[in-house]
């Protein structure tokens, strides 16, 4: 009698009992191993790429982070190093969301010789009251022998109801 099939037990089983398929186990394990090996390989490849293209003694990396973002909706950033545009980045909503949730974007990775340098970042987006907003911030820094990390940070200055654009060097 098919009625039996329609009774509650299969419905509940279908709803609650989720288990992997036994027959897949060995392939599953092998796929796990493959993923692990590819991850290791990937790590080595990234490190090779960094050593080759951006060796530590000349490496400079610029990161971008956001804090809150109530007074500024980010559209794009233009980055200049020593008056030369090194990157222009247009953000997708998913990237902005990732930034707002605490993610930090590596905006630029390049090489600079040791000595004095100037970094200028121009932020474009929507400011308070949905108005077009464009603001620049700059940093003069001394590039030493090791890798140089710089963070651009967009945060809300609640007291002024305005966004704030900060830039700082990391040790």
């Amino acid at each position: 009698m098919d009625m039996k099939r329609m009774r509650m037990a299969p419905l509940l089983i279908a709803l609650l009992c989720i288990s992997p398929i036994a027959a897949e186990q060995s392939l599953d394990t092998r796929i796990q191993d493959l993923r692990q090996e590819i991850l290791h390989l990937n790590r080595e490849l990234f490190m090779l790429e960094e050593d080759l293209l951006f060796p530590a003694n000349t490496q400079v990396a610029v990161f971008l982070s956001m804090d809150v973002g109530e007074f500024f909706a980010l559209d794009s950033v233009e980055l200049k190093l020593n008056d030369r545009v090194v990157t222009r980045y247009l953000y997708t909503p998913r990237e902005v969301d990732a930034l707002l949730r605490g993610g930090v974007q590596q905006l630029y990775l390049g090489n600079l010789r040791s000595g004095s340098h100037e970094l200028v970042a121009v932020f474009t987006g929507k400011g308070p009251h949905d108005r077009d907003y464009r603001r620049a911030t700059s940093l003069n820094f001394e590039k030493g022998i090791g890798a140089q990390f710089v963070e651009l940070k967009i945060s809300d200055r609640v007291s002024r109801q305005q966004p704030e654009f900060l830039v700082r060097e990391w040790d």
């Binding site: 990396a61 990161f63 982070s65 804090d67 998913r94 990237e95 969301d97 990732a98 930034l99 949730r101 605490g102 993610g103 930090v104 974007q105 590596q106 990390f149 963070e151 990391w170």
Partner: peptide, 16 residues
């Protein structure tokens, strides 16, 4: 607050 840039970078990809 994220206090390590590279940890934040991993989060940036993770959140996407």
């Amino acid at each position: 607050e994220v206090r390590d840039l590279h940890f934040g970078e991993a989060l940036f990809h993770f959140y996407q």
